[in-house]
């Protein structure tokens, strides 16, 4: 086990597109262990994507279980995740291990359906909402080379945006 170095923006590797995982072996499992240890060591972090440690494979870990009164599925390793359904939207505050000392408001879908493989390569479908849905969207964005900085909304014009999307 090891805590991996976290890439911070503007490291160009954070803009790369990660590739699907095809081999579910011990190397992958060892990497997932390190990735999770790295997430747990990150101050306040509830999720991490492989891209953030410079590994361009489509693996994310999320764990919203630290939040009270929030529906969640506990710790999840999602491999080759795909969002197949989006519903609603909400503004929420996000920060990122790869962008230290900055947070901003981002609009995300309120409810999503995610199809993903687990560590053994089996397919699952997850319905997520609220904080957990936001978390999955934030991490899946990393796999496509996107940071929350790419999706910031103006605090000043929040209300007007709401009107337009209602």
């Amino acid at each position: 086990m090891a805590i991996l170095d976290i890439l911070t923006w503007p490291d160009p590797r954070l803009k790369e597109t990660a590739q699907p995982v095809t081999t579910f072996d011990e190397t992958l499992h060892a990497f997932i262990k390190d990735l999770e240890e790295t997430m747990r060591a990150g101050p306040g972090a509830v999720g991490i994507a492989a891209t953030q440690v410079g590994s361009l494979q489509r693996v994310i870990i999320i764990d919203a279980s630290s939040r009270k009164n929030v529906p969640h599925h506990g710790r999840q390793v999602l491999i080759n995740p795909e969002i197949t359904h989006w519903e609603g939207y909400a503004v929420g505050r996000e920060g990122c291990l790869s962008v230290p000392d900055y947070t901003g408001n981002v609009i995300r879908a309120e409810r999503i359906t995610v199809e993903a493989l687990d560590e053994a390569g089996a397919t699952h479908t997850w319905r997520m909402e609220g904080f957990e849905a936001r978390l999955a969207q934030h991490e899946i964005d990393h796999l496509d080379g996107l940071l929350f900085l790419d999706r910031l909304v103006s605090r000043r014009h929040d209300l007007y945006r709401r009107k337009r999307y209602d």
Binding site: G44, A45, I48, I62, V70, V91, E94, E139
Partner: peptide
């Protein structure tokens, strides 16, 4: 009023 629960990911 909306609570803000900052997500760090």
């Amino acid at each position: 009023l909306a609570p803000m629960d900052t997500l760090i990911g």
